[in-house]
């Protein structure tokens, strides 16, 4: 099934969103998005997904570039729906793998013992030159994973936000554009309250992100946040009480 959504395509530089695999639970639907950046024929794949999605994601990559030109695969955090296909990608491609420094000890559990194929993102994040374009690895610690990063692409102005902005949608709402943020935020709320560690981390991330001109927020689950929804989401997220903020007396 072809679910490719082109987010940007200009002068040999392209950002594409795939929505392959879903985690369905009764009436709720958590789509899993993978993203590919193509710069003059060379590829940078973001959060490629679980092992079962490998074939479809590879096919999707092939629709936009020669897969042997895949240079980097980044894993924003260690969840199986992000990194579960690491062993397949390691076997199939010669791309360098990028993941948070603190998860480097886990890489063997996903199928890699060769540190020379790995680029580690330090806790403070980093600016990364993908050929002639810059990608900013922005720390998003504890949102939800410690060491997690989000990626801002200067060229397309897309912020690949990993689990931030993820929505659990009713089946009938999946893949629909968002008309009204307030009603959409209902689908964001329970996921973010449960998975994000505390508001202090939301604010820290927003303060880092606010330095950049974000046009699109591209989460690992759910719908893209575009135009005025970007600001509305960031405002909502900066005030969100979540995780430790919601601990009751009986929880400690």
């Amino acid at each position: 099934m072809q679910n490719d959504k082109v987010l940007y395509d200009r002068d040999g530089f392209k950002c594409v969103m795939f929505s392959i695999d879903d985690e369905s639970h009764e009436e709720k639907f958590l789509s899993v998005n993978q993203y590919l950046i193509v710069n003059n024929g060379e590829g940078f794949l973001i959060d490629p997904g679980c092992s079962a999605a490998f074939d479809d994601v590879l096919e999707a990559v092939e629709r936009h570039m020669r897969p042997e030109n895949l240079k980097y695969i980044s894993f924003s955090h260690q969840d199986p729906d992000v990194a579960g296909s690491l062993a397949e990608w390691v076997s199939y491609s010669s791309a360098k793998l990028i993941f948070p420094a603190i998860w480097s000890r886990f890489m063997e559990h996903y199928g890699l013992m060769d540190s020379s194929r790995v680029l580690l993102v330090p806790d403070e994040g980093m600016a990364f030159e993908f050929n002639d374009k810059t990608l900013h690895f922005i720390p998003a610690h504890f949102l939800h994973s410690p060491g997690q990063f989000t990626i801002y692409d200067e060229t397309s102005k897309v912020l690949f936000s990993a689990d931030i902005g993820a929505a659990v949608l009713p089946v009938q709402e999946a893949n629909k554009p968002i008309d009204d943020f307030d009603s959409y935020s209902e689908y964001l709320l329970s996921f973010h309250q449960r998975f994000m560690a505390a508001n202090i981390f939301c604010k820290a991330w927003i303060s880092r992100v606010s330095k950049f001109d974000v046009q699109i927020i591209a989460p690992q689950h759910g719908t893209l946040l575009t135009n005025e929804m970007v600001k509305q989401f960031l405002d909502w997220f900066s005030e969100l009480k979540c995780g430790a903020d919601l601990l009751g007396k009986n929880d400690t």
Binding site: E88, V90, S91, G111
Partner: peptide, 9 residues
């Protein structure tokens, strides 16, 4: 591909 990945694991 499936075999190589699984053998590696």
């Amino acid at each position: 591909i499936d075999y190589v990945a699984k053998r590696q694991m």
